[in-house]
C-alpha cells in the first residue's frame, strides 16, 4: 500500500524546474512556445466571451432591444430590489436549493458508482454493450421523457401504479403530489444522465495501469480493497474537479424538464429560479429583469466555486487551478 501512495504522490509533484532564478522576461522567452499554443484560446475567450460581457450590465438597465444598449435607461439596482422583495423569492430560493442539494446528493455520485461497477466487468463485449445502452437516454429529449413518464406513472392505467396498487392496494399520485415531485425529477435526471456521466470517469479509469492492480493483488488486497485503494483514488481528481464545477451552476436546473413536469397541483414545490426567469424573461420580455436574476445566480455560483476550491486545497485535494 505504501508503494501505491508513493506513486500517486510522485505523479502530482512538479518537476524540479529552476524557473525561480529567471527574470520575468527570460521566463516569457523560455516559455514562448507555450504562449503561442495559448494564443488561439485567448483570442477565443476575448472575442466570444468577454466582448459580449457588457450584456451583464443590462441587469442595471431597462434594456429595450430596439433602443439598444446605449439608449436604454439605467435603473441601478431596481431589478434586484424587486427580485428580493418578491413575495415568491424565498419559496423560489428554497425550491431551487433543495432540488440542487438532492441533485448533488443523489445524482452526482450515480455515475461514479456505475463507472466503478462497469469497471469490474471483465467481459469486454458485455461491458461495452452496457456502456452504450446506459448512455442512450442522454439523447432523448425531455418532451419524450415527460411523455413516457406520464404513461408509466399515471394513476389511470400506468404500469408503475398497477404494481404499486397490487402490493399496497393504493395508488400513488406521483405526478401531482408535491412530495413526489423532487424524487421524480431526480429520478428522471439519474435515468437520463447517469450513463453519460460515466464516460468521463471511465476515461479516467483507463489511465490506471494493470500493474497497479497487480501490485495490489500482491499485497493481498481483495476485490473491494482494490476498488477502494486503487480505482477510487484514480478518479479522485476528476471527482473533485467535477464537483467544484458543478457548484458553479449550483442554482441552475434543467428548465425544460421542470417546466414539463410542473402542474397546478405540484407547483408549490416545482417553481424554481429557472422556470421563473423563463416566464418573466421570455414570455414577458423583461430582458433586464431576467439578466438580473441570472447575475444573482452567477454570483452565488462564483462564490461556491472559489469556496469549494479553497476547501479542496485545505483538504489537500487537487483543486481547479
Amino acid at each position: 500500500m505504501s508503494l501505491l501512495s508513493m506513486k500517486s504522490r510522485k505523479v502530482k509533484t512538479n518537476g524540479p524546474l529552476d524557473t525561480n532564478q529567471l527574470t520575468k522576461t527570460q521566463q516569457l522567452l523560455k516559455d514562448k512556445w507555450l504562449y503561442v499554443l495559448l494564443l488561439p484560446g485567448i483570442v477565443y475567450f476575448v472575442l466570444f466571451k468577454y466582448m459580449p460581457m457588457w450584456g451583464v450590465l443590462m441587469a442595471f438597465q431597462d434594456y429595450s432591444p430596439f433602443k439598444g444598449f446605449w439608449q436604454s435607461d439605467w435603473v441601478g439596482f431596481d431589478h434586484f430590489q424587486y427580485f428580493f422583495q418578491n413575495p415568491d423569492f424565498f419559496r423560489l430560493l428554497r425550491n431551487t436549493l433543495i432540488l440542487a442539494l438532492y441533485d448533488l446528493i443523489f445524482f452526482f455520485p450515480a455515475p461514479i458508482i456505475i463507472a466503478l461497477m462497469l469497471n469490474e466487468l471483465r467481459m469486454q463485449f458485455f461491458k461495452r454493450t452496457i456502456q452504450t445502452l446506459v448512455y442512450v437516454p442522454h439523447f432523448m429529449s425531455w418532451v419524450i421523457i415527460a411523455s413516457i413518464t406520464y404513461v408509466f406513472l399515471t394513476t389511470s392505467g400506468g404500469a408503475v401504479n398497477a404494481v404499486v396498487e397490487y402490493f399496497t392496494g393504493e395508488k400513488i399520485n406521483f405526478l401531482s403530489s408535491p412530495d413526489w415531485f423532487r424524487p421524480m425529477i431526480i429520478g428522471q435526471v439519474i435515468w437520463k444522465e447517469t450513463g453519460w456521466g460515466t464516460v468521463i470517469f471511465l476515461a479516467a479509469l483507463a489511465s490506471v495501469s494493470p500493474e497497479q492492480y497487480e501490485a495490489a493483488i500482491m499485497d493481498g488486497a481483495g476485490r473491494f480493497r482494490r476498488m477502494w485503494h486503487v480505482t477510487l483514488p484514480a478518479l479522485r481528481s476528476t471527482i473533485v474537479i467535477l464537483l467544484i464545477l458543478r457548484l458553479g451552476n449550483f442554482l441552475d436546473q434543467g428548465f425544460q424538464q421542470i417546466f414539463l413536469m410542473t402542474n397546478s397541483l405540484n407547483r408549490s414545490v416545482a417553481d424554481v429560479f429557472d422556470t421563473y426567469v423563463y416566464f418573466v424573461g421570455i414570455t414577458q420580455g423583461a430582458f433586464s429583469y431576467s439578466t438580473a436574476v441570472g447575475l444573482f445566480k452567477a454570483i452565488v455560483g462564483i462564490i461556491l466555486i472559489y469556496g469549494a476550491d479553497y476547501l479542496a486545497k485545505k483538504l489537500k485535494q487537487p483543486g481547479l487551478f
Binding site: 418532451v143 415527460a146 411523455s147 406520464y150 404513461v151 399515471t154 394513476t155 389511470s156 399520485n173 405526478l175 401531482s176 402542474n263 397546478s264 397541483l265
Partner: peptide, 12 residues
C-alpha cells in the same frame, strides 16, 4: 372526467 386530468400529457 378522467381522474388524472391535472397531470395528463396534453400530447396524449
Amino acid at each position: 372526467v378522467n381522474e388524472d386530468f391535472a397531470v395528463m400529457d396534453p400530447a396524449k
